[in-house]
Amino acid sequence: MTRVFLILACMASPALATSPIAHVICEPTEVMHQKLTRQFGETRAATGLRGREQIMEVWTDKQGDWTMVVTYASGTSCIVAMGEEWTPVTPPDPA
């Protein structure tokens, strides 16, 4: 997964966060969003609240790569997972 190595190489001095994931890349939220948008061509595809202090975000690009980011109320965002072949699911029409 060369995309993972590209992201790791492009992040300026990644900070480690306490997490069960081996390596978590954290940046100020504005910097993280700019990198995902400008450098990787991703757009935010989905968001969800995780308690009062966190928002989970899924960012995707046109090739199907995806990045999951947790954004904290403190102004820091961290990449917690990434992968390939993102497929949006359309809910069935209830009618």
Rank of each mutant, 00 (worst) to 15 (best):
E57T: 05
T67E: 03
A46S: 09
T18R: 14
L49V: 08
W66K: 03
L8T: 04
M1R: 06
S13T: 14
H33E: 08
V31K: 12
V4W: 09
T67C: 01
A9D: 15
A17G: 07
Y72A: 09
T29G: 06
H33K: 09
W66A: 06
T18W: 12
I79W: 01
Q39S: 09
Y72E: 14
M32A: 10
T47L: 03
L8M: 09
T71I: 00
W59T: 01
E53K: 08
A81C: 02
W66S: 06
E84R: 12
H23Q: 13
G83V: 05
I21C: 05
E42I: 05
A9W: 00
A81I: 04
S77W: 08
P88N: 14
T71L: 00
A9C: 01
M11V: 15
A15G: 05
F5E: 15
M68E: 13
C78E: 01
I79Q: 03
P91W: 13
M82C: 05
L36N: 00
V4K: 04
T18F: 11
L49F: 11
A95G: 11
E85V: 08
E84P: 01
G51Q: 04
E53H: 10
E53N: 09
E30W: 04
T18C: 07
S77R: 06
L6M: 10
M11G: 05
F40R: 09
E57Q: 12
R52F: 12
D93R: 04
D61Q: 06
E57M: 05
P94K: 06
M32N: 06
C26F: 00
A17H: 06
T87P: 03
T18H: 12
A22P: 03
V24L: 02
A17D: 02
Q54F: 00
P88W: 12
T37E: 11
G64T: 01
W59Q: 04
C26Q: 13
E27G: 00
V69N: 02
I25P: 03
P88I: 10
E84W: 12
V89A: 11
T60H: 08
H33P: 02
F40T: 11
M68F: 02
T29S: 14
S19V: 07
